[in-house]
Computed example of a mutant assay.
Amino acid sequence: MLEALTLREGYFGDPAAFQALADLLQDIFSIDISHQMKLGGPDPTSMPFGYFDPSGRCVANFSAFSMPLVVNGRVVRAAGYQSGAVRPDYRGQGLYRTLMKRAFDWAERGGFEAGILLTDKPGLYEPYGFRTIPQFKFYGAVPQADLPVPRARDLDLKQTADLHMVQMALDTRQPVSETFSVVRQKEMFLLNAHFDPDIRLSLLAEDDAVIAWKPQGQTSLQILDVAARNVPPLGHFVANLGPNFQNAEVFFPPDRLDWKGAARPHQGDCVLMVRGLEPASLTQPFILSPLADF
Rank of each mutant, 00 (worst) to 15 (best):
G94C: 04
F251S: 06
D293G: 06
Q174V: 12
F104C: 12
D89T: 11
I33T: 07
G94Y: 03
P127Y: 03
A141P: 04
L39S: 03
F52G: 12
D27H: 08
V238M: 04
G140P: 00
V210Y: 08
D32K: 00
S34R: 14
R8E: 12
D27P: 04
D14L: 01
P215I: 09
V183F: 13
R8Q: 13
A103Q: 06
S220M: 03
D208S: 11
K186N: 08
A280S: 15
H194N: 00
G235S: 09
Q135T: 11
K260I: 07
F136Q: 01
A78I: 05
L257A: 06
L201C: 11
L21C: 00
E187H: 12
V238P: 03
Q267K: 14
F237I: 02
P290Y: 05
F18S: 10
F237A: 09
L5Q: 12
E126G: 04
D14S: 14
M168K: 04
Y96W: 08
A107H: 04
K158L: 05
D255F: 07
G92H: 01
Q267W: 13
L2W: 01
K38G: 01
P254T: 06
F112H: 14
L118M: 14
P233G: 12
P232Y: 06
D23K: 12
V183S: 00
V250T: 02
N192W: 07
T283L: 15
L277P: 07
F136G: 05
A107S: 15
Q19T: 11
I133A: 10
Y139L: 13
Q216A: 15
C58M: 09
V274T: 13
R131T: 10
F180N: 08
L201D: 04
L117H: 09
L69P: 07
T219S: 15
A22W: 04
G115V: 01
G56W: 09
R102Q: 13
L277Q: 12
A263P: 04
L124G: 00
A169L: 08
A193I: 01
A17Y: 02
P68K: 10
Q19N: 14
L24W: 11
F112Y: 15
D53F: 00
H236E: 08
L221S: 02
L291V: 02
A4I: 05
A227E: 07
G50Q: 09
